[in-house]
Design a protein around this nucleic acid. Structure first.
Lengths: 332, 332
DNA sequence: CTGAAAGCGCTTACAG
DNA sequence: CTGAAAGCGCTTACAG
């Protein structure tokens, strides 16, 4: 900027004014400055600017895995909202590892992000308290944080799951299985709860042998199906607690050429092209990302935290049941 | 850092040494400093550090759309390599818009990224020349840049396409259609070329009515299929030039209950669960992202550009033909 | 409308 | 092993 000023024969401050699009600059000086900028290939140094301003114009986005379709759609929605606010996005994958989540979050804070959106992997987030008190707003998505109070955007997991089971009940099923992710995972727990509630409301006793909770894998899915279909009173329908499990179940059913009424939690691409089409309880990752980003920028604009700030919000986003065939197979 | 120094009763420079993990610090002083850091909730300001060091420890990643599975997998691979180098990733979606690409790329440069990975949307990249001369290495992925010489990582589009057609030829087909993306798109052009080459090698005349080049949409796909299947000598097989087209074609074929031997360029999730399974020429977005990131960090380590630097490299990554049924339907 | 001075929070280069 | 001074490239606060 000093060089540009020298080349244009003006002061550094005038260059600053031009670069920042301030209006109160003489037209001749402005064009002289612009010319020098073009000639020297000048590009303002954001680090210096951030250092002085204290605001970085960036936010951090911490996901489980950027490559997972659910999170990549969420990610794009965050980016689009950030763009409206002239803000860039740092993205990182925690790979469901609490330490990695912490490292990334603190690295973002060291870069003085204006705010943080986190899909929590760990179960304790007190490490963020100093940062939040220092004025970095944090919004959690998909799962609530542990140990601290903060804004969080959730899917209506319990309601969605309940609705999926009710759909199967409406088609005459009474033996309905559930295969979900590991019980430590918040969403897995909520979805199981919805399953139980729906059964209870229908006056059907909960049966242990119809429920599996484990990280999705081909082996665990095969085992779960053995148990579901093997006994004296096999399941005639199944709610899959997440899309990885759904895919795993579909593969295993195809291998066995077994048919089973099926509802998947979370949509999968090409679900409509399967035979039969896959009925799902669809989440809306785009809406979740947008809601998280909107809330975050609201907090950023709100200024300092503390007792004056609005209390933490929990936003629950609804699901949509999409019938495509697999969930409408009638009970034998 | 000044506050930490005061609290610990040492100089600012000693704090700096501790924070940076330098070894030559007395153990007592070190622990005093660490205690003050914990107590004050100190976190080093990366902007100040970057300003002084000139290196930001970030790279920019510019994709067409973070939400697209191909790019989100590529993105994760880039992140993993960046992680090995202690580097964070700024990600942005150009949405296939040249202006947006330019804006994002220059915003990244203003943030003094150490390097840039770009899936080009625009056809001219001379705007990057000043940045590259200023020492920011740029690696292009998936498509080559326009107007400038630079490193680029490509899929073997032509070879893959050729192989897909040869596969269909081997199953007895002679009337093979091609539906690809708009001809301006580099990959679309290369894949069409591969299609032509394969036909030529087999001594089959190129037929205009069997080829469609348009952005994938339900309407354009329906039209294309009308043309392919309508004439006196309809196509018996089809190569789809990209995954969006493939999905669109599958939907349209399902609607018409028409079967057609089909090979898709680029894999799609659940392709194995369709009836018949979807045969594809698979790309390897993870390998592309990793290769791009590796090359970029090599350039970053290499230092200043100019005549001493190694000349631009083009790396071509092979495809894999995955037969799953749809491509093995024999010609009538 | 224009500019000179101070300072953001670090690291670099140097002295002891 | 420890520290005092200068400076990275901007913006802020102020004076004219």
């Amino acid at each position: 900027m000093k060089d540009v000023a020298a080349a244009a024969g003006v002061s550094l401050k005038t260059v600053s004014r031009v670069v920042n699009g301030e209006s109160n600059v003489n037209d001749d000086l402005r064009s002289a400055v612009l010319e020098s900028i073009a000639q020297l290939g000048f590009r303002r140094n954001a680090s210096a600017r951030e250092l002085r301003q204290g605001r970085s114009g960036t936010i951090g986005l911490l996901l489980e895995d950027v490559a997972d379709p659910f999170y990549s759609i969420l990610s794009r929605a965050v980016e689009d909202v950030a763009r409206e606010h002239g803000t860039m996005v740092f993205a990182g994958s925690s790979a469901e590892d609490a330490d990695r989540e912490r490292d990334l979050a603190l690295a973002f804070c060291e870069r003085r992000v204006d705010g943080l959106i986190i899909v929590p992997a760990g179960s304790s987030h007190s490490y963020l308290l100093p940062e939040m008190q220092a004025g970095i707003p944090v919004v959690f998505v998909d799962r609530p944080p542990g140990d601290i109070e903060a804004d969080v955007i959730l899917t209506d997991n319990r309601g969605g799951s309940r609705r999926g089971v009710e759909h199967l009940l409406a088609h005459g099923h009474r033996r309905i299985g559930f295969i979900g992710d590991a019980p430590e995972i918040y969403t897995a727990g909520e979805r199981l709860r919805g399953y139980r509630e729906a059964l209870e409301s229908a006056g059907i006793a909960f049966a242990d042998e119809l429920v599996t909770q484990a990280p999705p894998s081909a082996a665990s899915t095969a085992e779960a199906l053995d148990r579901l279909l093997g006994g004296p009173s096999p399941a005639t329908a199944l709610l899959c607690g997440n899309s990885r499990t759904t895919v795993s179940v579909l593969r295993e059913l195809a291998r066995r050429s077994t048919r089973l009424a099926l509802v998947g939690f979370d949509d999968v691409e090409l679900g409509d092209l399967l035979q039969p089409g896959l009925t799902v309880v669809a989440q809306d990752p785009g809406a979740m990302g947008a809601a998280a980003a909107r809330l975050l920028f609201q907090r950023i604009a709100g200024g300092s935290p503390g007792p004056t700030a609005a209390p933490p919000q929990t936003v629950t986003i609804g699901t949509r049941l999409i019938p495509r065939g697999s969930g409408e197979l009638a009970a034998p």
